[in-house]
């Protein structure tokens, strides 16, 4: 067992009726790490969060946060963590300032005592401190929710889909905030359905249908992608899609704007060279590109589905 681990999930499972939402999940998050759980809606991310934050009991398996057991020691855990649920859960009819004071009071502290932790974020919403939370824009709500999750100086932060529906600029700012918080020693578990956010985490776990597909550093995952990827351009993309789809399998030919992305084994370069020679009239250009996080996720989904079907 990893001694530095701040969060440990050990064979956790949880069903809702016949639906197995979390299926024997194992992973751990090191102290001071930003760990991303990445997967689509319905993958089991929120159920996992609710178990780890002591809001839901697992059917089997065990979990701990900072060494405290998620079932027995729920009181200690609740004192020491901050949780920002995916659904905006602050009091809509309280103002920004009132919400913040309320959360500080519940945790028997004051906004003043830990102001240094939230100052960075709070300053951005301070002009609206007397506005009711329900009247804030999406980005502002997100910042207020983060302030409320931080106001009692937690040691572990759970953020369930904090960037869903948020624009690209606010997302970048949000991730920058998380990296500043990390520097204070905070451990952060964050979930997102968006593959492009993986690179902002120290490590990620891909999650799909209640199972973890892979865990690793984002760059290592991308480096381990088993196939070659080529970007192909042509003056007749439709022809190329149909022809290459017939040769390589349609699942390996994907339209990407005005380019095509083509997947294959080491022979792919030769196949493309021959193909472009045979069809000079279509001006086929091709070049090798690096696989993306999304490519890796799709490949893992496929092999996971194959296993299920066996």
């Amino acid at each position: 067992m990893n001694e530095k681990a701040s969060i440990i999930s050990n064979n956790l499972s949880r069903s809702y009726g016949k639906t197995l939402a979390v299926d024997a999940i194992n992973f751990s998050v090191d102290e001071g790490e930003i760990f991303g759980l990445i997967g689509p809606d319905g993958a089991g991310k929120t159920t996992l969060f609710r178990i780890l934050t002591t809001l839901l009991l697992p059917d089997s398996g065990s979990a701990s946060v900072m060494g405290y057991d998620c079932v027995k020691d729920y009181k200690q855990i609740r004192k020491n963590i901050g949780y920002m649920p995916g659904k905006f859960s602050l009091y809509q009819d309280l103002t920004v300032k009132e919400n913040l004071n309320f959360y500080a009071t519940v945790f028997q502290t004051t906004v003043k005592e830990n102001y240094h932790l939230i100052e960075d974020i709070y300053r951005q919403i301070e002009p609206f401190k007397n506005r009711r939370a329900g009247k804030l824009s999406g980005g502002m709500k997100q910042k207020l929710a983060l302030c409320c999750a931080l106001v009692h100086k937690p040691k572990v932060l759970f953020l369930d889909e904090p960037t869903t529906g948020v624009d690209a600029v606010s997302r970048v700012e949000f991730w920058e905030m998380l990296h500043r918080l990390k520097k204070t020693g905070l451990t952060i578990l964050v979930s997102t359905p968006y593959m492009d956010e993986a690179v902002r985490c120290d490590r990620v776990g891909f999650i799909q249908k209640g199972k973890i597909l892979q865990i690793g550093k984002p760059q290592d995952i991308v480096d381990s992608f088993p196939m070659m990827v080529y970007a192909v351009k042509s003056n007749n993309p439709k022809f190329v899609i149909n022809q290459l789809g017939a040769i390589l399998g349609s699942e390996n030919v994907f339209r990407f704007g005005n380019e095509l992305h083509i997947y294959g084994d080491k022979m792919l370069h030769e196949t493309l060279a021959q193909f472009s020679l045979n069809h000079k009239e279509y001006d086929i250009e091709y070049q090798s590109i690096e696989a993306g996080v999304e490519d890796c996720f799709i490949e893992l989904m496929k092999s996971n589905n194959d296993q299920e079907n066996e």
């Binding site: 689509p40 809606d41 993958a43 529906g165 359905p193 799909q208 339209r255 999304e294 996720f297």
Partner: peptide, 20 residues
């Protein structure tokens, strides 16, 4: 209007195939 939020990447690609 933001049609593909939260879907898995395979579905998202299929969705874009439908758009094309």
């Amino acid at each position: 209007d933001e049609p593909t939020g939260g879907v898995d990447p395979v579905t998202r690609r299929q969705f874009w195939d439908m758009i094309y």
